[in-house]
Amino acid sequence: MTKIKLIIKGMHCASCATNVERSLSKVPGVKSVNVSLLTHKAVIESENAKEDDLKKAVSRTGYSVVNVEK
């Protein structure tokens, strides 16, 4: 299990965060996702989820990942 944090830009409403959460949780390997509108962070626990897949999942909902913290 690894933990990864994505800093996401552009989310400015609660349904945005819900969408990002939904999209990220569909990425293979992802066990839990917690997206916070206020801290602009997605905290993801996963088994070998690919960073690229996670980034794509975020951009699919219309937002962009500006930074990745491990």
Binding site: C13, C16, N19, G62
Partner: peptide, 10 residues
Amino acid sequence: GLVGFYFNMD
């Protein structure tokens, strides 16, 4: 969002 069915406030 509308196209991808990720509806939001926007």
